[in-house]
Design a protein around this nucleic acid. Structure first.
Length: 872
RNA sequence: GCGCGAUUAGCUCAGCGGUAGAGCACUUCGUUCACACCGAAGGGGUCACAGGUUCAAAUCCUGUAUCGCGCACCA
């Protein structure tokens, strides 16, 4: 499709409007919190995007929501702080800069740690702010004066303090554990940096003979090469097949090692032969078995994925080559029993694309068990609330089964672990070499720990370290705890849980009251957007061609407590049309304000009261929706109010009043009020178009910016269900009459002279006549003319037709109507004739059904009468 | 294997105990002085399936199926 985006003279030009407002808001100082100490507070510390990041659809949604919440609460008069910042993103940044250097022919390893880190800072200053600029384009009203970075000075001090504190409390320890090892990046990686995948692999069955020559045990493995580091074979204590054999020694093939047959709960007797080779250094389960049985820890792979000295003749081979050779040799020497096809689950490292190797290595850990206790409590008690609530269980489930957290990474970019070692390897935690030395006393400090901390360790401090913790700053005292954390569901464990634990432990208060988990943005086919498949849509393309409001509307109008939403091109058209409608209708109002005088809203007509009632209804829905993270309900209500109520009816009905200087004052005031309030309610979602329209209207008490306006507060006074019912009746009558016209080919808006009616319109004659394009609506029945009729909302309309009425056509129409009404009546009567219904249903329901049945009977009778007339 | 979500008009979704709704798409009509990025009218659904509760079920309960998402296991 050729998207000819040429704006017509009457079309809203989003792009130029959007460029205009952001700098104006910013220079007016609207992004920082005001300093009224009496005002309620509203704080969000935004999830810090990676410095390597650029805006994707998930971000666009996440930060639009936060901007919406900020703008909404700002209009509510709250003291709003939306604090932005960035994460240093250890692995992502290090591998990106490393790659860049290699492209320039520089070997990152060769230049050394300090020079490399300098290069990273250079990159960070030149290119690390992309996403912050994109937030501005999206319209995010964040307080840039408080921008934080997880590696800035104060933040680093906070990280050190936590580490030292926890180390000295014994919560942090160093130990040998099996971790996810990326052999390309040569570092441990967290679960979130890996992807689970099932691949078609093999299951190798290998014979391990007993050392005494008496028989054998057959084990099965998917990674045969790891046998080089086997230290035992385990069987389940209840497994009868191995009774009496436990304790005997097995000759480990291809080596000269003997390993014991041990008994442990871990093997599943149902699987394979029930015997499992135990390789503690290369499998987390085996590691635990090894610990239980005090088995040695042998490593047959080094940190680059090559076979170690332990592997003897295989030493130096790559892990995949080693597998081939081991299998070949096993086969040749008669140890290989069989090879089966087997689906095996593997972990792929996101950064390198390499298969993650479970590998034992020295790492630093946090024991989270004691930290978890309060973190569980505050969620169970509801002090912290999840939206949607179902994520509470997800969180609690993980917290209740919490494990130790591996916080060390073998990288250069990040917070270097503040541990210093003496000659004999004793670690001291300190903020500096000097401090460590003084803690060590006599012993001499000889080196600092090389590893850096997991990025989540520092981002876990985000809600308070950004506010100045550990210093007792004004910001910390004022803005902590924050109100809400808006984030994606895949980091509930890695980040949300950590912030809660850290906040409670370090600041002694919850970090936020609400956790809102937003929906995943999918493609129009409901698939995950994928960079490699090219199915991702760049939100910046949408912003630069259609505008940020369009992007925001498309996303926000589909999000609430759902878990996915589908992004599609078609929907951006809806958004554009809506912006255009808002702009055009407002322009129409602006053009019809000749002689406009602000003033009180008295001497209102029914229609004025009706639209004000609908406005009040709209406000109620919108504020409730904004408060409960149901953005789609808010946008739906705004759309309906504006398009289907204000434009389709109120403006149309008011046109004649607006043309007359005698009658125009009131509709002018009502229109200005409706637009004023509507724009205020729309602003949090679509800040640009609302601001642009606000500018062109002569609003009483107008502020320099819509953004600085307050939320409409006087609307409950206009609540009027009686008027609503009355007007709804007129509208229904109008629609019925229009339909009748259309049925007989009388084009819409083409005026016809006279229509008769029977029944009560309660003063709606003029409105119905004008909106159904009838010059005169007269009571009674036409005399001596051919006419057609309809009954709607309890009123009969008779439409005289000049010339010859198509008798056939009219009879068919009446017949169809009778059939329809009869069918409905049948259903109602069936219900009403059932004694159970009449006795047990609520009286008002029975009454309503009775009335409906009566109305249908009347209608059918009239239709029959007309048929008789026509037939005769 | 366990858990969570989804299943309603061609598409995207709302409704969550009282006669099936919206937007888009579709059909017909309309160059009307805010808007054709518009207006009017209209067609289109056994609410995944099977049981149950109830006077009444898209809506509550129990299963089943399909899709998606987690968690655990996988030698």
């Amino acid at each position: 499709m050729s998207e000819q985006e040429t704006a017509t003279a009457t079309g809203y030009d989003a792009l130029s409007a959007e460029q205009k407002w952001y700098p104006r808001w910013e220079s007016a100082g609207l992004f920082a919190p005001h300093d009224d100490p009496e005002a309620p507070l509203y704080t969000i510390t935004i999830p810090p995007p990676n410095i390597t990041g650029s805006l994707h659809m998930g971000h666009a949604l996440c930060y639009s929501i936060q901007d919406l919440l900020g703008r909404y609460h700002r209009m509510r008069g709250h003291r709003v702080l939306i604090l932005p910042g960035q994460d240093h993103a250890g692995i992502a940044t290090q591998s990106l800069v490393g790659k860049n250097l290699k492209k320039q022919g520089i070997d990152p390893v060769a230049i050394g740690r300090d020079a490399f880190i300098e290069k990273v800072w250079e990159w960070r200053h030149e290119s690390g702010n992309t996403i912050l600029e994109q937030f501005r384009a999206l319209g995010c009203a964040f307080d840039w004066s408080r921008l934080r970075f997880t590696l800035d000075e104060g933040y680093t001090a906070a990280v050190h303090k936590v580490f030292i504190d926890w180390f000295e409390r014994g919560l942090i320890y160093r130990g040998m554990r099996v971790v996810n090892w990326d052999p390309i990046l040569k570092t441990s990686v967290s679960d979130i940096e890996t992807e689970r995948k099932d691949i078609q692999g093999k299951l190798y069955h290998i014979r391990y003979p007993f050392a005494d020559g008496g028989g054998e045990v057959i084990i099965a493995t998917t990674r045969p090469e790891t046998m080089l580091a086997d230290v035992a074979v385990a069987v389940h204590p209840s497994d009868k097949r191995y009774e009496g054999l436990v304790g005997k020694e097995l000759q480990l093939p291809l080596t000269d090692r003997l390993v014991p047959l041990i008994s442990d709960e871990y093997p599943d007797p149902e699987f394979g032969t029930g015997a499992v080779k135990i390789t503690p250094a290369h499998d987390p389960n085996d590691f635990e078995v090894g610990t239980r049985h005090n088995l040695p820890l042998l490593r047959m792979l080094d940190e680059t994925g090559k076979v170690t000295e332990l592997g003897g003749i295989y030493a130096g081979l790559d892990r995949s080559e080693a597998r081939k050779r081991v299998v070949a040799d096993l086969e040749e020497q008669g140890f290989l029993v069989k090879i089966e096809d087997h689906t095996i689950p593997i972990l792929i490292s996101q950064r390198s694309g390499e298969i993650v190797e479970p590998l034992a290595s020295e790492q630093w850990f946090v024991n989270q068990r004691t930290l978890a206790v309060r973190a569980i409590q505050v969620v169970e008690s509801g002090e912290i609330e999840f939206f949607p609530p179902r994520f509470k269980d997800v969180y609690l489930d993980w917290m209740n089964n919490i494990r130790d957290w591996c916080i060390s990474r073998q990288l250069w970019w990040g917070h270097r672990i503040p541990i210093y070692y003496t000659e004999d390897g004793t670690p001291f935690a300190a903020t500096s070499w000097e401090e460590a030395q003084s803690k060590a006393g006599e012993a001499k400090i000889v080196r600092q720990e090389d590893d850096v901390l997991d990025t989540w360790f520092s981002s876990g401090l985000w809600p308070f370290a950004t506010l100045g913790w550990p210093e007792s700053t004004e910001d910390l005292k004022t803005f902590y705890p924050t109100n809400v954390l808006v984030t994606a569901r895949d980091i509930i464990y890695l980040w949300v849980a950590r912030m809660i634990m850290m906040g409670l432990d370090l600041v002694d208060e919850i970090p936020f009251k609400h956790v809102y988990i937003y929906a995943t943005v999918l493609t129009k086919d409901g698939k995950r957007m994928s960079k490699s498949l090219g199915t991702g849509i760049d939100p910046m393309d949408v912003i630069s061609t259609k505008g940020a409001d369009v992007l925001r509307y498309t996303l926000l109008a589909q999000t609430g407590t759902n878990q996915d939403l589908r992004y599609s091109e078609e929907r951006t058209t809806d958004a554009r049309n809506f912006c255009n409608k808002v702009w055009n209708a407002s322009r129409f109002v602006a053009m019809n304000l000749d002689g406009y005088m602000p003033g009180s809203l008295d001497q209102l007509e029914d229609f004025d009261r009706w639209i004000l009632h609908r406005l009040a209804e709209c406000e109620k829905t919108v504020s409730q929706a904004y408060e409960s993270y149901e953005m789609q309900d808010a946008l739906g209500a705004l759309y309906r109010f504006f398009w289907s109520e204000l434009c389709d009816w109120y403006i149309e009905v008011s046109k004649s009043r607006l043309q007359n200087p005698e009658t125009r004052a009131i509709p002018q005031r009502v229109l200005v009020k409706c637009l004023h309030d509507f724009l205020r309610m729309l602003h949090p979602a679509l800040p640009f178009v609302s601001e642009e329209v606000y500018e062109m209207l002569p609003i009483p008490g107008k502020q320099p910016f819509l953004m600085a306006e307050t939320w409409p507060s006087d609307l409950t006074a206009w609540w009027d269900p009686a008027i609503d019912a009355k007007i709804e009746n007129w509208l229904e009558a109008t629609r019925g009459l229009r339909a009748l016209r259309a049925e007989f080919g009388l084009a819409a808006m083409k005026s016809i002279p006279k229509v008769y009616f029977e029944g009560a319109l309660h003063g709606g004659e003029k409105v119905v006549a004008s909106q159904a394009w009838v010059q005169e609506l007269v009571p009674g029945k036409p005399d001596g003319q051919k006419f057609v009729s309809t009954t709607v909302a309890g009123i009969d309309f008779h439409l005289p037709l000049e010339g010859v009425v198509d008798t056939e056509k009219e009879l068919t129409r009446l017949d169809r109507e009778i059939a329809k009404a009869s069918e409905e009546l049948g259903k109602l009567n069936q219900r009403l004739q059932s004694p159970a219904f009449v006795e047990r249903a609520k009286p008002e329901v029975v009454e309503r059904e009775r009335a409906a049945a009566q109305a249908l009977e009347d209608k059918i009778a009239k239709l029959r009468e007309r048929m008789a007339l026509f037939a005769g």
